[in-house]
Amino acid sequence: MTAASPAKRFRDLGSKAVPYLLILPVVVYYFLFWLRPVLKTLIDSFRTAAGGFTFQNYIMVFTDPNFMPALRNTAIIVVFSVSLEFIAALFLALLINRKFFGSSLFLFVAMIPMALPAVAVGAMWLTGLTAHGWMNSLLYYLNIIAESHKIYWLTGSEWKLLALIIVVDAWQVIPSVMIILLAGLQNIPEETIEAGYVFGGDYLTVLRKITVPLLGPTIQTAVILRLISAIQIWLIIVLLVGFSRMPVLVERIVYYHEEVPGLDISFQMASGYTIIVSLIVSTAALLYLRASGAFGSKKEAAR
């Protein structure tokens, strides 16, 4: 017994350590490539160019005349693009889920925008939206506008530009939202929906009371992913109208980081913006998750 027990204890210790050993590579990976850069950015945002501690970067960020417009524009884009994309994607997913003749071809076509990189999308819409672009040509050939009435898509009020950006972004990301929702729809057992019809529901009632609630977790996933990436829209804006014309938060980061390296604290300001954007993203995500009931007990979530 005395001979067996140290060996046994060693074995116990070994078996306890195994799970930790197994996740060690992931921990190391996260530390090196995720936590370290985050911490470095956080520290940089409190540093002067010479390396001392300061709040100056944040003061500069908050007094940047473009900060408030950037915040406002980002908020508008998020609210409208997420709602628009969600509604359009749900509609498409419901349509494709009916498996009509040719629905798989339709699905394929609908997914094309997803395959294009953002830069290509920007370039494509840019060539489309200039005064002599394909958008005006198309409208002209369809006899919707006269030759002398070219629409100047990329000029004019900020609202017009915002709407344009929301539409272009929606064009690209609706397919991915749709795929998530479609996968969710296909996971709902058919009998559950049919029971809704048998027990007195018409299409809209069943959609509202059964399909959408059962799709809940999927909708949550889709919306949270879109929410985060809508806050991060910038490339398409810069490609369409350039820097500083339609400031949004992430565009500011890139702007200070890439476009004004002459300023000796531009790097620190970019870090400041980064931290602020991260806080906003996390807060928005948390607020949304709380509002949609993801933190409640199962029972509350179901109500």
């Binding site: 009998e191 559950t192 018409d202 179901a302």
Partner: peptide
């Protein structure tokens, strides 16, 4: 007629009770 106008009720093989209610 659509199902809701037939006044029939049905018990499905997999019960098909609604899990969120």
């Amino acid at each position: 007629l659509p199902p809701r106008k037939r006044n029939v009720s049905m018990i499905f093989q997999n019960y098909a009770v609604w899990p969120h209610m």
